[in-house]
Simulated scan of single mutants.
Amino acid sequence: MPTQAVAIATPVPLATAANFSVLAGAGVTNTGPTVISQDLGTHPTASITGFPPGIVLGSVHAADAVALQAKSDLVTAYNNAANQATDFALPAAIGGGQTLLPGVYTAESGVGLTGDLILDAGGNPNAVWVFQIPEALTTASASRVLLTNGASPCNVYWQVGSSATLGTGSTFVGTIMALTSISANTGANIQGRALARNGSVTLDTNNIFLSGCATSTTGGTTGPTTTGGTTTGGTTTTGGTTTTGGTTTGGATGGPVTTGGTSGDTGNTSGVTSGNTSGVTAGNTSGVTSGNTSGVTAGNTSGGSGADGRDHAPGRPGHGGKPGKPDHAKPSDEHYGYDKMPKGYEDDHSKSHEG
């Protein structure tokens, strides 16, 4: 785990692009019962195929003025992410159980996710990760991005200089902003967004969900990590006590680790998995039934719904679910992922992905 005194990553201002689960420049193609929780759009190419059988819980914008504005905002967001100052170098191979603190991670070339990557917020729900990848991003089958200690999928951004490809049955977290195209192979799930500037987005039996995030984000640092020092301004937590706009002296920031996890919005714990994806916790399913569960079982989503500024709730969540015990080194007891699914989706699709 790298160490740092100050995390300089800032939230990327997505503006109207934040309303989209999927946004493309050269059309969207889908195969199978994909479900996305927010808007679907493309501009300038208007082609959208595969919906149905795919389900869009938001609105569809095929080369209209809304999609045009979102594409413009995506360009601004992409450039913002690409130009943030670097905290750490990002190796070409990640996902061997590494734990990454908040910050800006910069690669020299393409990056491959081979296994489990853990993002540890250290108790700060406003912690931000920005990954700057100048070439392609690829993820292996069944690879996972895991969140712990209050990390929020709303604050994870992947700026990709060419195309992104997500492996079969993989679990990915964060907003992908690719210069070219994005392809999600069968059963890959995203707790975040798939936003392609110039190319197409190709989907195959995927679930793309995100809730509780602001529809527009403007600046602000993730806040310094101090030890025995003084933090002035913003919101600083000391030993579980939150002080807003005040000064905290003589203590380490970072509040308590909450069981069940909060990822920026209340109840953003475990979500949906497709096929053999085991949620987003290492070793155990989090918020889904053990075994080869596709999607979530009725009423068994963990956590509550979080307002994302839209009227496209994926479904009624369950309550009280807790993430399972991870099988990697214990960064926390709070690994979690997707938080909710559309009503009825569990019964319609759970059987089709078993085994």
Rank of each mutant, 00 (worst) to 15 (best):
A18F: 00
L146G: 03
T241A: 12
G239E: 00
V60Q: 13
T76A: 07
T253I: 12
S290A: 15
I190W: 00
H328D: 07
A196S: 14
G344R: 05
G264E: 00
A9N: 06
D333K: 08
P224F: 05
G169Q: 00
T266I: 06
E334M: 13
G123M: 06
K330S: 10
T217H: 12
P2Y: 00
L146D: 01
G234S: 10
G219W: 04
G309P: 05
Q84S: 01
L90M: 09
V280E: 01
I48F: 01
T99W: 00
M177S: 07
T171L: 04
D327Q: 09
V296K: 11
D308V: 04
T259R: 03
Y338V: 14
P102I: 07
P53A: 09
A136T: 06
S109R: 13
F20T: 15
K71M: 13
G287F: 04
S37G: 02
A46M: 10
H319I: 02
S59Q: 14
A178I: 02
G212P: 07
L74A: 08
N19I: 09
N284R: 06
A7F: 12
H312W: 08
N30K: 10
P314N: 11
A142L: 12
V66G: 08
P323G: 10
T225V: 09
T258E: 01
S274A: 08
A164I: 11
T86Y: 02
L137Y: 05
I36W: 05
A89S: 10
A142F: 09
G32V: 15
N185L: 01
A184W: 03
I208V: 15
H353C: 12
S47A: 13
Y338A: 09
T10K: 15
T248A: 14
H353A: 06
A18N: 08
A65T: 14
A329W: 00
K351D: 05
V130P: 03
H353G: 14
T106F: 10
R316V: 07
H349M: 08
M341S: 14
T205I: 14
D39M: 07
N79I: 03
R316S: 13
D120V: 13
T215P: 04
E354M: 11
K330V: 11
Q84W: 15
K322A: 15
L74Y: 01
A77I: 04
M1L: 13
A307E: 09
S211Y: 15
T232H: 01
D73Y: 02
N79A: 04
K351M: 06
G122R: 03
A282N: 04
G355A: 14
D87M: 11
G103I: 03
G212Q: 10
Y336G: 02
H43R: 05
T202C: 01
